[in-house]
Design a protein around this nucleic acid. Structure first.
Lengths: 344, 344
DNA sequence: TCGTAAATTGTAACGGATTTCATTCTGCTT
DNA sequence: AAGCAGAATGAAATCCGTTACAATTTACGA
């Protein structure tokens, strides 16, 4: 199963490999007649140069890796899609590594990607999303970043000084709270998210801040931690509704949990938004698909991916890049929120 | 930015590169003291062998590529997730190529993957999903498959003899129709899907077949073609409901369009399933999230991905693999279908 | 027709691993 | 202490491109 090499082409065309290479890359002038002759032979043999050999010498592979925590969560495909579209134009091919949010898998992948000499890495989820990341896990990424540019999307590694691109989630959460307060809600709960993850903490902190501005607070029993799944949303909402006095509005950590919350509320015979308002976060297509359509905070996932690749591309080519790029969240008011109603 | 090579290690340890290589791969016995000395130096220098160099010589890269039509459609992440989990254990890393269903992009990627010498390719969507694929597009894949194993998932290339893994969609569609007929439905419509795609055709053919068995038919005005998006489902359902006599049940080409159909029906004031039954296809998490929960045909996307990698792995290692692996669909009856009701 | 600059083309080193075959150590037998 | 098998190690070829530098042609003016 030996495949055709540049030597085979050179031999058949009675030229040196250098000339064939020049035809291949247009890297130097070649006599028109020679070029045509070589081209014909290349095409007839369906020759395609071996990217491994080229990369080995040029020390660049034209590959970017994206490490993310869960490709089945619709937010991430959107980020990937943005990244890939930008990357394709720039000549990159993508490794996709699903870490399942597991630090160990992340480390494994980090090692593999280093061996494979990827040109750059886009990192989402996992360790860059926890409040207090163990320093050895930080160090690992920092070490790698010395040779391979790394961009963190929606996360950070304290003290690492790595490049970051993220949505201002705090601002997004604030917008949601303000929206609910304007609708007259005074008893608001927060639902979903792992307690130790920063995406959860940041939102809760923001909610607290705005509530405080209005003389309100987020009582401990109005926070229900869980994970980010539909199932969690449902379970947590069940719990919340079991309490004697139920809140008039619930802010969910993401669209998935909001969908679960809606299911639970419906099953309890509550009308949305008449009896209770529910909000999501992320603005995935799902938020528009569900009934009632979700009021949510849209983060431009596509743009996050696109910008990550853009930055990486500059870094790869030794350019200067801003350490932080912040994307503005956008509040999308739809059908799942409405005026507060007195609760019996 | 020179990185550490096996030569650097060898020099520092006062041995030849061969010995270092042997330590690295356990490919031959090395004296224990030497091994320890070398290991220490490797670790201290954080040396990781260059996968490009190894691959160049060994003619295997440990990479598999998945080409798919739309990573933002939740069915595909599920397939990828299955593939990756299986592949990770076998030592593969994954390229993900989103073709957007575009033949040209598919061809581009096919070329790139060949250059990169991937060990195998999992192909979904695009050209393998159309009824009459132009022969040059078929040939392109067949040519590639001579050097690189290819597995087609949920599709085929007529006459190509390529390995296939797919869900028996016809059977799935039949199950849905039987279910609806048992519920007393006589006027059933089919909604969504591009007319020229085989996934659409196969389903419609199956629906026709079963209806015919019961002396019923699928009239032309009971078929609404479109694409596979939520939006399409909504628009097409709007059209359908504009007709004088509306069907009592609607079979949608996938879960996305079913969600759109539900939205449309709700907006028209119809109760589901009281006024109209709606079914999905694929069994994505979305089908469970939506209200009412969708009756749908589940194809085990995770398993498709997993089996694809398994087959590929065997093919890569010269093993024998069945030309076809068929997965059984599973009818999941939930809340979106109910007994037929007389229509005014 | 000769000389020289410009246009083409060729030679060979290099990138970083693996592996075959040859060589040098060991330790043990007698 | 010599001989020898088996263990440990090394030398060098190989994979397939790119490119610096050298060598050869070609073209054109004098």
């Amino acid at each position: 199963m030996k495949s055709v090499t540049i030597y085979d082409i050179a031999r058949e065309a009675n030229v040196s490999v250098a000339t064939v290479s020049r035809v291949l890359n247009n890297s130097a002038p070649v006599k028109e007649s020679t070029r045509r002759r070589i081209m014909e032979i290349i095409e007839r043999n369906r020759f395609q140069p071996n990217a491994l050999a080229r990369s080995l010498l040029k020390k660049e592979t034209g590959t970017i890796a994206m490490i993310l925590p869960d490709i089945t969560n619709p937010f991430f495909p959107e980020v990937f899609w943005g990244a890939e579209n930008m990357g394709r134009e720039l000549g990159y091919t993508f490794f996709l590594c699903d870490s399942a949010g597991d630090y160990k898998r992340e480390s494994e992948y980090l090692g593999i990607l280093r061996e494979r000499r990827v040109d750059g890495i886009i990192f989402l989820g996992g360790r860059i999303n926890v409040a207090n990341c163990p320093s050895d896990l930080v160090q690992e990424v920092v070490d790698l970043s010395v040779h391979t540019p790394v961009v963190l999307v929606n996360g950070q590694l304290a003290g690492s000084g790595l490049h970051r691109i993220f949505t201002d989630e705090a601002k997004g959460a604030e917008m949601v709270v303000r929206h609910l307060i304007e609708l007259g809600h005074r008893d608001i709960a927060f639902l979903g998210g792992l307690e130790y993850m920063s995406t959860t903490r940041v939102k809760i902190r923001a909610v607290r801040k705005v509530l405080k501005e209005h003389g309100l607070e987020l009582a401990p029993d109005r926070i229900k931690y869980g994970d980010f799944s539909i199932q969690a949303g449902k379970t947590l909402m069940d719990e919340l509704l079991a309490s004697p006095r139920r809140p008039t509005a619930v802010i969910c950590v993401n669209d998935f949990t909001a969908v679960g919350a809606i299911k639970s509320a419906s099953e309890h015979g509550l009308g949305i938004p008449d009896d209770i308002s529910i909000t999501g976060f992320d603005g995935t297509p799902l938020s528009e698909a569900v009934i009632p359509e979700l009021t949510t905070v849209s983060q431009n996932a596509y743009e996050l991916g696109k910008l990550a690749v853009e930055s990486l591309h500059k870094l790869i080519n030794g350019g200067k890049v801003k350490k932080q790029t912040v994307l503005e969240p956008r509040l999308i008011v739809r059908k799942s929120t409405g005026p507060a109603k007195k609760v019996c």
